[in-house]
Design a protein around this nucleic acid. Structure first.
Ligand SMILES: [Zn+2]
Ligand SMILES: [Zn+2]
Length: 166
DNA sequence: AGTTGCGGGAAGC
DNA sequence: GCTTCCCGCAACT
């Protein structure tokens, strides 16, 4: 993961796993732009502690939001992973692109993958995907599950296509 | 159970 | 017409 941020463009080789799987490190979800040639994704932000606590190593709580809407809703309201904190998890949405989530664009051409980002994330990085998966499996069992705590539940596309062309 | 990409439909402009 | 978001589906892990 190289955590690209800000308005930037990169070209990856097709043999790069990151590029082939369209992974930037940020928690991005697919969004329909009615263009099969350009894959668009928007940032989901990060899960933070409602009390903004700090762990021993002065590290903040910044968990990775689930991509799936249903799974993400289940994360909200769970207790803070810090055992000495009574806070609950809440979503800090991304507003890094004119008040809206940062967007990523991926285009596959020949043996290359063209990447472009729009916006600057206004939130901490979420944990890496592998870390989030480990957390899922660790706390996903009935015995170890965190208790639920009360919860109620620009540039135009035409220009972008031109930038990507040739 | 969760991730990923596709695509229909609706809405704002 | 162009762009964006919402939501369901299917394939895969
Ligand atoms: Zn906390
Ligand atoms: Zn973001």
């Amino acid at each position: 993961m190289d955590w690209p941020d800000g308005h930037c463009k990169y070209v990856y080789h097709d043999d790069s796993e990151e590029a082939r799987r369209h992974n930037s490190g940020w928690a991005m979800r697919n969004t329909n732009n009615h263009n099969v040639n350009i894959l668009k994704k928007s940032c989901l932000g990060v899960l933070v502690c409602s009390l903004r606590c700090r762990m021993e190593e002065s590290a903040t709580v910044h968990l990775r939001p689930a991509i799936c809407d249903k799974a993400r809703k289940k994360q909200l309201g769970k207790s803070c992973p810090n055992p000495r904190c009574d806070g609950i998890l809440e979503l800090q949405p991304c507003r890094g692109h004119c008040g809206y989530p940062v967007t990523h664009f991926w285009r596959h051409v020949d043996g290359y993958v063209f990447f472009q980002a729009k916006g600057v994330h206004d939130h901490p990085r979420p944990e890496m995907k592998a870390s989030a998966e480990a957390r899922r499996h660790q706390f996903g069992t009935k015995e170890n599950r965190h208790p639920l705590v009360g919860h109620s539940a620009p540039l135009s596309m035409s220009i972008l296509i031109e930038l990507f062309s040739s």
